[in-house]
Simulated scan of single mutants.
Amino acid sequence: MTQAMHFSTADGRRLVGRVEGESVVAAFDAPAEGFVPADDAWRAVRDANGERFAIADVHVHAPVLPRKILAIGLNYMGHVEETNLAKPEVPVVFAKWSSSVTGPFDPIVIPHEETRTDYEGEIGVVISKRAYRVSVEDAWDHVGGITALNDVSGRRAQLETPMRQFTVGKSFDTFTPVGPVITSVDAITDRDRIAVRTVVSGEQMQSSTSDHLIFSIPEIIEYLSRGITLEPGDLIATGTPGGVGDERKPPRYLVPGDVVRVEVEGVGAIENPVEAER
């Protein structure tokens, strides 16, 4: 299994490296966009023989800082059913600003105005090469790897405003934790059955596998690339399973002091403490 990590050392160097157990082996200086999983970048990571660092001694950043984050709503039947909405006939797409990206262990900060902050654990797909009008059959050839992400959602902003401000409610600063690594596609044992799980302060909230997606990862890529050029480093959030806090009775929103853990099979877990804006 090859996993790439984007990290900073104690002396301020920002690097990309290959994960080996509890260590990371430096491959190259990290560019502004982090690790873009193109073929040449993966070769550099696989061949890395630089300095070795204990992961516990470095600061782990989001592995990639994408130009575009394209997210899919209502893509697990469990989530469709809990919202009492109709099963979508085509993918439901919305955007998240890249400024919402934060590290895999950094705080989620709730803005003063937001009263309904929710979690959404998801499988993240990172594009490796330009994709335009890509077929389902060729879609995986344009994927550089997978990661874990939390599509944190401010439901007040998203749903209570008259025009339903999805982009605003989904794009508050720190509302897209990503990481801790990107795992190469060839290391994924079963690309059609990737497990995802969300735990909030020790309580399991979500658990499913990607074979329960309404629109598969290749179908999502085919749909998005009709008229939209997907670029290397772009991040696709593939949808969240049932069990979100907003649909629970009573609702279970994130509050300061919570810790949200999102696990993706073959990737590992992100784990973010929740804080109030100061």
Rank of each mutant, 00 (worst) to 15 (best):
T167S: 10
D192H: 13
S207V: 07
V181A: 00
S208I: 03
D173T: 11
L230G: 03
L224Y: 03
R197H: 06
F175V: 10
T167M: 14
I214T: 10
S207T: 06
E219V: 02
Q206G: 10
K170P: 05
V181N: 06
I220F: 02
H212Q: 15
F215D: 04
P232L: 12
I221T: 02
T174D: 02
I236Q: 08
D234A: 10
F166D: 14
G227N: 01
Q204S: 08
R226I: 09
G239P: 08
G227E: 07
S207K: 12
F172V: 11
P218W: 07
S216C: 08
V244G: 00
L235R: 05
E222T: 01
G239E: 11
S216H: 04
I236G: 10
V196I: 13
E247C: 15
E203G: 05
P241N: 06
V199P: 12
E247G: 12
S171R: 07
P241R: 03
D211I: 01
Q165Y: 13
T238Y: 08
D190N: 15
E231S: 11
E231T: 04
F215C: 09
L235D: 03
T238K: 03
D186W: 05
L235A: 07
R193L: 13
S207A: 14
T189R: 15
G239W: 05
D190S: 14
L213G: 07
T174Y: 03
D211T: 08
V199A: 07
G179V: 04
R226C: 04
E203N: 14
I221N: 01
V196E: 03
P177A: 07
G202F: 02
T209D: 12
A195C: 12
G202W: 01
T176S: 15
S210R: 04
S201G: 12
S208P: 00
I214L: 14
V185C: 07
I228W: 11
R226M: 14
A187L: 12
S225G: 05
Y223I: 01
I217G: 02
R226S: 10
I220G: 09
D186L: 03
S184M: 06
G245K: 00
R191F: 06
T189L: 15
L213Y: 08
I214V: 13
T238V: 10
S171C: 08
Q165K: 07
S216N: 12
V181W: 00
H212T: 13
A187K: 10
V168T: 15
S225V: 06
D246V: 13
A237P: 06
G169D: 09
P177M: 09
T167V: 11
T209E: 09
E231K: 02
E203Y: 09
I194H: 02
E222H: 00
R197W: 02
T229Q: 07
D246Q: 11
E219I: 03
G242T: 10
G169P: 04
G243N: 00
L230E: 04
D246T: 11
K170S: 05
V168L: 15
S216G: 09
G242E: 06
I221S: 01
G245M: 01
T238W: 04
E247M: 13
V168Q: 12
G245P: 02
